[in-house]
Amino acid sequence: MIRAIGLQKKFGTFTAVDSVDLTVEPGTIHGFLGPNGSGKSTTVKMLTGLLEPTAGTVEINGMDLRVDPVGVKQTIGVLPEDLALFDALTLWEHLALAGPLYGLSRGETEARAGQLLRYLDLFAERHTEAGQASYGMRKKTALALALLHNPKTLFLDEPFEGIDPSSAENIRELLVGMAEKGATVFVTSHLLDVVEKLVSSYSILAGGKVVATGRIGERPLKDVYFEHIPRPAGEEFSWLG
């Protein structure tokens, strides 16, 4: 369950996110869409405690993020924009570190970590240090970290960017399965086709404000998106091709 009221973030005089209200119910996969620089990642950072909102409140799984940040973090999984990995730890060591911090036993951590890495086709490379791993490997590791403790709410910032098609399909199936069991999944993405097949509701952000919200199936997502986010004017590229 995600509830944000009047969420705002200012950097100096620049307002990156302005008066964002959001409610995402359990069992829902919610798509958070918008062009580059619209404030999606900033919003995710505020919802997950990486950034302090200038104004507004965030409630996750019934807990106020400002009042009980550690309690909230126990119940959420996050795939952040910058992946948040330690360069000096191997991919496997990241998971070995995280499990016990979320209260998992050693055996359970190893079993879940192995299963996740095999499913994401990362098991063979698990002893690579994050600083030496490719972007896709790092992203899969960050995703495995987000899933390891079976969070009630999952925040995924561009989960399919830089991921190979078979792993992307596996991730999609995982997310659908989690939502069916009652988890809340919050996904930002630029890939409208992928989002349309995955999410059940969406919000579109532009200039830091929510300009549209809706449910999948009411209208084609592309129509709604381009209605609010106009495409740049056409150019004649006679020198291309």
């Binding site: 948040a84 990995l85 330690f86 360069d87 000096a88 979320y102």
Partner: peptide, 15 residues
């Protein structure tokens, strides 16, 4: 030695 990304991970962990 953590870089910004490593520091973010500290913030995401329940610590």
């Amino acid at each position: 030695t953590d870089n910004g990304t490593g520091f973010d991970r500290y913030l995401l962990l329940p610590l």
